[in-house]
Design a binder for these strands. Sequence first.
DNA 1: GGCCAGGCTAGCA
DNA 2: TGCTAGCATGGC
Length: 309
Amino acid sequence: MERLIYEMEPRAPYDFGKMIRRLQGVNHEMFRFQGDRLLRTIRFDDQILVLAVDSIGSIENPKLQIALYGDGLRHIGDVEGLKQYIRIMLSVDLDIQSFYDQMAAYALYQPLVERFYGLRFILEADLFECMTKTIIGQQLNLAFASTLNRRLMELTAKPVMWEGLELPVFPSAQDVARLDYGQLRELQYSQRKAEYVIDFARLVAEGQIDLNGLFTKTNDEIVTELSRLRGIGRWTVECFLMFGMGRTDLLPAADIGLRNGVKKLYGMEDKPTEAEVRRIGAVWAPWSSYVMFYLWETLNDKLKERAGS
DNA sequence: GGCCAGGCTAGCA
DNA sequence: TGCTAGCATGGC
């Protein structure tokens, strides 16, 4: 099997251990682990590859070893493009220290920043995958959303076997476009959700939506463009911008998780309204996505306590 | 047993 | 333009 192995040096601080423990904690459907090595399949230039990431540095002197495996490697012309795509996926170039410097002015946020120091996004591997999962996740509890993701993968894409591990493969837009609504209904998708997911895949597969063309557009342009589609509202595009495109300045103020996180941080009786979150979050810019990310993480505490007891 | 989940649409006023 | 029922299911 073909392989490509190289190293990259992220900007400090970069806590790869925290990043993979987080993924293990939420029982993410895409990732697998060999000790502290992170594994998943990715799709690049229509080739399915195995990506393995090891940390060979420290939080303040971070270094990653990247390994890519798969016969599809020999069909990839733009290897530099592939490497750049992985840099973005692993958030290696982000100047997160400037986020911490900014939040240093707000005492209430210090425990949050200290606790998650060095934690960065690992983005979804491609934009189709991200949008599809976000639509599936609308309004559902995370556990059930994850089940629906898993079932979609089992239906549409054969997993890759890797050193005894089964690595799931997320379907391409073409794979999903071929389905009919009834097939997703059988997986316990609602009728509407089945339509949203498949209709979106068909638009991408037919070339009516150019996902990679979005990278040159602003957040507002992308929200306007994508929220015109049936089944895709503001929240969905904002999550897509954060977890698919790595935009750091999103504030999905209506999000239930964010409202619960703000409630917890501020010790409120009730969940704040969308307007209150927007007012409180005014000082988060341009790092709102990261405040939201860290606040979401505080909501997992109860789950982890239960799992550990 | 009812209500809420990291929402959105359609249908109604 | 603004409001709300309904959606599928699991967990508390």
